[in-house]
Design a binder for these strands. Sequence first.
DNA 1: TTGAAATTTCAAAACTTATTGAAAGTTTGT
DNA 2: ACAAACTTTCAATAAGTTTTGAAATTTCAA
Lengths: 168, 168
Amino acid sequence: MKITEARQQFISQWGAFGTHWGINRTMAQIHALLMVSPDALTQDEMMDELNISRGNVNMNIRELINWGLVERQVIPGERKEFFVAEKDIWKVIRLIVKERKKRELEPMLELLNKLEEVEGDKKDKNVKAFLDTVTGIKKLGRQADKTLDMMVKAEENWFVSNMLKLFK
Amino acid sequence: MKITEARQQFISQWGAFGTHWGINRTMAQIHALLMVSPDALTQDEMMDELNISRGNVNMNIRELINWGLVERQVIPGERKEFFVAEKDIWKVIRLIVKERKKRELEPMLELLNKLEEVEGDKKDKNVKAFLDTVTGIKKLGRQADKTLDMMVKAEENWFVSNMLKLFK
DNA sequence: TTGAAATTTCAAAACTTATTGAAAGTTTGT
DNA sequence: ACAAACTTTCAATAAGTTTTGAAATTTCAA
């Protein structure tokens, strides 16, 4: 397989992958393109390579910057802005985990705390089933929260090596 | 807060949560409803509680059964079918991980293997950047694959207790 | 300052995904 | 064998999401 075809396949598959994980296709494709590009790219280059509009590139680049996955780079003497992606895949994962934890896990845990204070007789089987479920999810959620915090703070090798020790 | 309101909030939030994880809102809501219901429910009861059509309930129930998250229950003397959800949250997570691993991680790893065999001079910086990225993701992906396999096979307490030991 | 180059915005259009509901199919009791 | 009860299917439609592209805004070298 030629490099150009391989790059295209990679970008396309990373895009599809993203859609399964709540990241929009274009955002994931831009990220993929930047990951396999040795040099920083401009918005125009991305428009060209991915066949998407200027507005689309701009909005998704901004979102990638919010997530910490892409950085703006100013090259002296150049009017245009250049962009580079974080290429260390472990850092990428940590950034994504951090962001999604904040957006999804934390609000869920807050709600579960409120819901645990539901009024009503614990002998009522509806109340009991409800509390059992909520409590179970809360326990798991808190565990996940702690675990992910550790992961986010950990250095790559520490995490990998612990995982290897535990699971080999 | 009254139990009915608490249930509603839980169902609605679990639905929203699902959409961030590639599971459709209704499927997640049906699952939530079944998790907090002490008894098995019929399709008609779900239509009522969630205000959705018969077809919608039916399709999503079928999908939940495919994932192993819900079971059909036949009650002697009853013409209708009843449904119950898996309520052990760790089993739920394991079933979801198993399914998504198969649907997403495994195809990705297959592609990466193919892409690693790209032709071209490794001195070419494009080829080099490409291979570095692909190899990095493959390593991470293989690690995740192993880890998730272990998790899927593990008994609840084994996994929880190991996690606790490692991360407390 | 000025104005050409570049970036950003956002309403409308295109596309994708989910839902409905009525018709077709299946099951079960008599 | 029939028909009532129940389940399944799927084409049409609705809802939701992403993308476009042109206009507005910003930037910066001269």
